[in-house]
Design a protein around this nucleic acid. Structure first.
Lengths: 174, 174
DNA sequence: CGCCGATAGTTTAATTCTAAAATAATCGCT
DNA sequence: AGCGATTATTTTAGAATTAAACTATCGGCG
């Protein structure tokens, strides 16, 4: 409680835990920034590749990727949720993908508010072609990590995702 | 090294390593998607908060954050590099921050091409006020993780960043 | 049935972002 | 000194993004 911070005071005992430290949160901030920079580094590189080699944008690719796993198609809201982007954003991307012939869009039979989108044959063909190369790029970002590190990272990120979700939820219902 | 992937084919022996496996790269792809979703989850939440509580945008906040650590100010290119966003993007954000009185911008004395930006008193004051709360938000995303997990995650993300950089560099010079 | 709150999408306005071309200044050489 | 390559930034055109207001539909309940 009375503890000075980041200078690593050696006299901190085992009871002086995270919660008991003063609220500087320097460690967590650094962790977040590190996470963000990994993410941007990779995302930017993927975007550049996709543009350069296939003349295709990353958000468009992301939508096709969601659809490739969903044979029955997906409702727009579901796509929005999975990609974690706003609903309004999906509308125009979908419009473009319909126009370019990669997907179809139909009103759900059960619910006339809902729009279901599906890959066309062309869409699936082109997505698969890109996805093959895309998988190779991705794997290379991790190629200097051991399998053990990769497994551990998987675990930790799963925990982080859970932790974050919980935190966000908790704040919405006090 | 010997780890089977998610279908757990028990017959894969110890020699069937990453390199020897067929090039599906499923594991790496999942890892990347998990990293991305942690990142977006947190980033979106921070953005919402900053907007709701301070009526300030995340990219603007990010620029102030860089400047708060740099008393001598920063050259635009350096800001662009650190935030990993394109140079053209910085130009207009800086313009806005100058207009709102949070930063100043002067031509570098040594190099008339370069523009140096610095926090104004107002900018520093307002940034610090926001940063205090911001630090608290961030810490909460990690609050369900042990200190050990946080440390491990720090390590692994550092390795990943290195690995990724190496991969990206290697591709540019064959 | 008929209203009412919730849900699915779209629209709108404004911001953020990128890639690529243009501008301007510096640096390294000869 | 001056030329050519490099570097720092700006401009441009267009895509992606969000929040918030709006429209249409659904589902439940009196």
């Amino acid at each position: 409680m009375t503890t000075p911070e980041e200078q690593s005071p050696l006299w901190i005992d085992a009871e002086t835990t995270v919660a008991a430290r003063p609220a500087d949160h320097k460690m967590e901030l650094r962790l977040w920034l590190r996470l963000l920079s990994c993410s941007r580094l990779i995302e930017n590189d993927i975007r550049r590749h996709l543009n350069a080699e296939f003349d295709f944008s990353l958000p468009r690719f992301d939508i096709l990727a969601q659809l490739d796993r969903a044979d029955a198609g997906l409702v727009l809201g579901e796509v929005s949720k999975r990609l974690m982007v706003s609903a309004g954003n999906i509308t125009s991307l979908v419009e473009g993908l319909v126009k370019s012939g990669h997907i179809t869009r139909t009103t759900s039979s059960g619910d006339r508010r809902a729009q279901v989108i599906r890959l066309t044959d062309k869409g699936r063909r082109e997505f698969r072609r890109m996805a093959k190369v895309h998988g190779d790029w991705i794997a290379r970002y991790f190629e200097h990590l051991s399998q053990k590190d990769i497994d551990k990272l998987m675990d930790l990120l799963a925990s982080l995702k859970d932790s974050t979700r919980e935190t966000i939820l908790a704040r919405q219902q006090p």
